[in-house]
Amino acid sequence: MLEFANPTRFMALSRSVLPWLWAAAAGVLAIGLVLAFRAPADYQQGLTVLIMYIHVPSAWLAMMCYAVIATSSVGTLVWRHPLADVSARAAAPIGACFTFLALVTGSLWGKPMWGTWWVWDARLTSVLLLFLMYLGLIALWRAFDDPARAARPVAILALVGFVNIPIIKFSVDWWNTLHQPASVFRFDGPTIDPSMLWPLMVMAVAFTLLFLAIHVAAMRNEILRRRVRAMRVKAASTLVPAE
């Protein structure tokens, strides 16, 4: 872990790893899509189950991304790891995108299935709140002039949010049973047929690889961006016209 602590080493290491990540992501994604389209149609939902193969991985990634941010935040606050806040900063927009996809695909799945664009069931509502929390992180980051100064406040916010997630989940579940609609919405039934499980798993792996590739690339960009900023600040402070 410590050898990644040096940004320069990270840049060198990531440059060699990144092409493989992209290739792996593309490859597994292709396999996953083929498997998904060749899987049998669900007896209940027909072809619409195809949406499940992108909705569920998106939701998983949305949550995994927040876990990455929370872990990075611990790294920032406890160990002052130099790359920790770069990791968190890079991951936030990616997580927000996956959360957005989970919401939109969930909505597009819900309309043909249950007739409404939006369903206030426990899961979708929790994901909506997660989306708002991502936006909050990004908003707090952008409110600071110096991104390095934002690192620790955002880390605190991320961890407060992380601690809150089980509480929110519990509350929303409780709220949902209170307002129980006539039928119970289960996106993935208690048992998924193996013929659907495999494509789902492969798509999940594909999304994860894609996230890793984008994340590493975004971290590289963030490191470069901070170098550029530092150099511009230095340039601005030293270019004093000679009298």
Partner: peptide, 29 residues
């Protein structure tokens, strides 16, 4: 979190509202 920011504005509600949802749920209930 926002005490040092000059352009705080709507930032505090944006940051805090998701965290207050549990209180809202049980409070209304």
């Amino acid at each position: 979190l926002t005490v040092a920011l000059r352009r705080g504005g709507l930032l505090v509600p944006i940051l805090i509202l998701p965290l207050t949802v549990p209180v809202l749920i049980f409070g209304v209930s």
